[in-house]
Design a protein around this nucleic acid. Sequence first.
RNA 1: GGGCGCGUAGCCUAGCCUGGAUAGGGCACCGGGUUCCUAACCCGGCGGUCGAGGGUUCAAAUCCCUCCGCGCCCGCCA
Length: 598
Amino acid sequence: MSSEDRSSSPVLDPWAPFLDAAADALRAAAEAFSLRVPVGELRAQLRAQDGPDGAIAFPSHRLAQGARRPPNELATALAAGVRPDPWIRAAVASGAYVNFQVEPERFAATVLDTVFARGARYGEGAPTPERVCVEHTSANPTGPFHIGRVRNAIIGDTLARARRAAGRAVTTQYYVDDMGRQAAMITWIWSKPRAEWPEPIRQAVEGEEVPGEKPDRHRGRPYPAISAYLKDHEDARNEVAALVREIELGHPPAAHRELTQAILTGMLASLARLKISFDEFVWESDFLRDGSVERVLERLHAAPHAVREANGAWAIDATGYGLPKESNHVVFQRADGTSLYVSRDVAYHLAKFARFADVVDVLGQDHQLHARTLPALLAEIGEARRPAFVIYQDITVPEGGRMSTRGGSAVWLDQLLDEAVERARREVVARREDLATEDIERIAESVATGAIRYHVVRVAPEKPVVFRWEEALSFEGRSGPFLQYSYARASSVLRKGEADQGPYPYEAARLSDPEERALLRVIAGLPSAVEYAARSAHVQAIAGYAHDVADQFNRFYHALPVLKSGAERPSRVALVAATRQTLGNALELLGIDRLETM
RNA sequence: GGGCGCGUAGCCUAGCCUGGAUAGGGCACCGGGUUCCUAACCCGGCGGUCGAGGGUUCAAAUCCCUCCGCGCCCGCCA
């Protein structure tokens, strides 16, 4: 493709034509020295926005090695050999680097045209037919959602959004574990009339209950007391055990599903406040009911390393699958014939593989051994496909240790949200006494949830996180509200300039200030940020990118007038509109509300 | 004991996949900025050589090895 053929309008990534042009120019310049290097290779080494004043940088070291010439000398020679190009203003050697300065007017036009043409879809990649499944959250429905699990939900939801934007056909799934002993305990107690509840459990609950409280809170209340009660009441233990067995055999009482569903509904209401929802819910017990667990067990019995134990239990000798030595004995079926979590999870994954080309599971680090055991069992039954895992570190409390419901260290998501809303409300009231009450409430809710989501995504999943209220609810600096504020500020400018709607005629030549050019470069980075986050699952990259946009917009805002400028006004208005669109799209990816005013 | 993850300024964090130009941000602290489009903002200053050591390389925060520290896991629980 020659440079002249490149058109600026239909691109998805504004940097693309400039990178292509620079790669072409490099290849041509290199050929002058009889250096034949594939354009793709050169293009891969180019780094957009890495050079001085945001130039495209090319480190010539690698090429210099092939050419057996000093890098600095080669860079100088290459820069001198770059022919004039409509996309590239100049190629300047600087040490071992060749810096390609983009043609600024063409760059401004390409960026703005792309943003305006794509609108809400700016940042998205080309659609691919590949169907992918992102399973995340999947918290046991036994009580309120606590913030130890919110990291899973936010990482998973953001990853799903990023992959969707990158063009993949994403389906999110919540795996509902209705088969555990915990779930059975809840069903056990609520199946009895209140009058028949053991005294200690009734006492623990009564007096605490609030009329009309959420179902997850309500149904989950007896849980800690049941836990304590079972320790020294064998009869009750036996009742629960009998219930567990009924559930495992595939015929749970009707109340079981209803209770689980009710608690799940309450949990989902909390998540909905964070804009987190799911395409599908997969119930663990369904795999028992439809016979797929049975089929998995049969295949495992016939597996190459299956072993039957004296008492009738079945296991896989997983030696050779790279598991820790002590974990090589993987029991997949109990002596009484019932299945275990791993074998049911094999059934679940076979179901996923049947529908999706790509399967991702977001799991807490406490599941890391499971994440290595599951592939071993899949291999044993001859299944070649594997899920990809995104494993995040748990959120701990400052006193040390994980968040636990029993120890009282758990903070429920609802509590966190309520506290955040309260703080946000105070902030809004202090700044905006002109607003109506319902507007204050709406803004406070958005600020609160935005702060929490940002606080969690901004950190790489594999980093351990200590929960501190002051940090989680920060509204300044690198925070969700800072992004929302910047968006509101851009909105306000457009509103006052009566430019809420396009079109936005501009003159590229007018956007020549360093702050304007810097802003254009940042805006141009959204498509690659999306692609990177989707591919690598480093969702924190979106958070970092959104901050970069807001940050540079604020610098521009303080440095230059928009509405009060002269001939530059339409062009600057266009730049603000493009910023607002880009920042808005990034906020959408992060699940943070866009606020027109705050 | 074994396995996995983490270790960047007083605190939090990006960068590590795909090694490359003086390691980006934020909080806190100090000093400035509001007759001007939202000060949840902006400008300046202070502060790090990327846990320690070794190796590979023209080049290492980034790759490899060893060690130290912290977290998690090692159930016929999920």
